[in-house]
């Protein structure tokens, strides 16, 4: 499915390019964001991912979380969960990693031109959506109403907090955040992200929704959007599956008849809704 946005292709899809870690931002516990310094300008489209290689340990798919209009710096936001991400997290500024990419499909920004855009992000799902949000804000006049809904586990787990606050301060963006639980020092909303979806001031007739987060959250969000009158073909989601080659050869990322590395990770919801309901797929 074409998203109407030009996908970028890796110059050499099989060869990791040595890339230096220029800056590291400690976002939240167990999550870090890197500003990598590519030796050549690195073009990508919002929604795409790279394979990041920790020397001698292994390679993992990680979405690009930076600004698509700036090819001089490459941002990745990583949660430490296992062997490879732990090895990546142990690296320092100045160290090198291998980068293979970019791969995969993109958020449907071309199709969203002239439409209202609703971004719904949960937890770390804000990272893959961030390039799309930055692209929309950079070309703000081409879109209708822009709404961002963000859900996190707790106030301490809010990703890119300062940036979210800055977006919330704009007159041309509606942003609402909610956390699953909090203490008494949080004055924002407490509850699940679907609550904000149910209340959002959006017109399904004229909107495109881009949703990213844990898969259960995306299913619940899509259901809520459908209840609000969205058709499945107005909703886009980004899926994650275990990957090895990232070029559609090994079959590790297969989801029914599609390869998430090549046909995804961004899908129009009607293409994957039924597959997302199959246990174990």
């Amino acid at each position: 499915m074409s998203t109407g946005e030009a996908t970028r292709r890796a110059p050499n899809a099989y060869m990791p390019i040595p890339t230096r870690i220029g800056r590291m931002v400690g976002d939240i516990e167990d999550v870090f964001t890197w500003a990598l310094e590519p030796s050549e300008p690195f073009e990508f489209a919002p929604g795409q991912f790279n394979m990041l290689y920790a020397h001698g340990v292994g390679e993992v798919p990680i979405s690009i979380s930076g600004d698509p209009t700036d090819p001089t710096v490459l941002h990745h936001t990583v949660r430490v969960v296992g062997k490879v991400t732990r090895a990546l997290g142990a690296l320092n500024v100045g160290d090198e990693i291998g980068v293979r990419g970019p791969f995969g499909s993109t958020w449907p920004l071309g199709q969203a031109i002239g439409q209202d855009v609703l971004f719904v992000a949960g937890g770390l799902g804000l990272a893959p959506l961030r390039p799309a949000i930055l692209a929309v804000l950079a070309r703000r006049g081409e879109f209708g109403q822009v709404s961002i809904i963000y859900g996190a586990r707790s106030p301490e787990d809010i990703l890119f907090r300062r940036e979210l606050e800055a977006w919330r301060g704009r007159f041309d963006v509606d942003l609402e955040a909610i956390v699953d639980r909090s203490g008494t020092d949080w004055y924002g909303r407490v509850g699940v992200v679907t609550r904000l979806v149910a209340e959002a001031d959006v017109d399904p007739e004229t909107s495109v929704a881009m949703v990213c987060g844990p898969e259960i959250m995306m299913r619940f969000t899509a259901r809520e959007l459908e209840q609000r009158g969205f058709e499945q073909d107005q909703i886009w989601v980004s899926l994650e599956r275990s990957m090895k080659c990232a070029v559609g050869l090994c079959g590790h990322c297969q989801l029914g008849g599609t390869f998430v590395c090549k046909d995804g990770p961004v899908y129009r919801y009607d293409e994957v809704a039924a597959k997302m309901l199959v246990r174990g797929l």
């Binding site: 949960g122 770390l124 639980r181 509850g191 844990p214 959250m217 619940f220």
Partner: peptide, 13 residues
């Protein structure tokens, strides 16, 4: 109840 069920799943962990 539906909201609490989703909350209980603690999906962002």
């Amino acid at each position: 109840l539906s909201r609490l069920r989703l909350q209980k799943l603690d999906v962002y962990r």
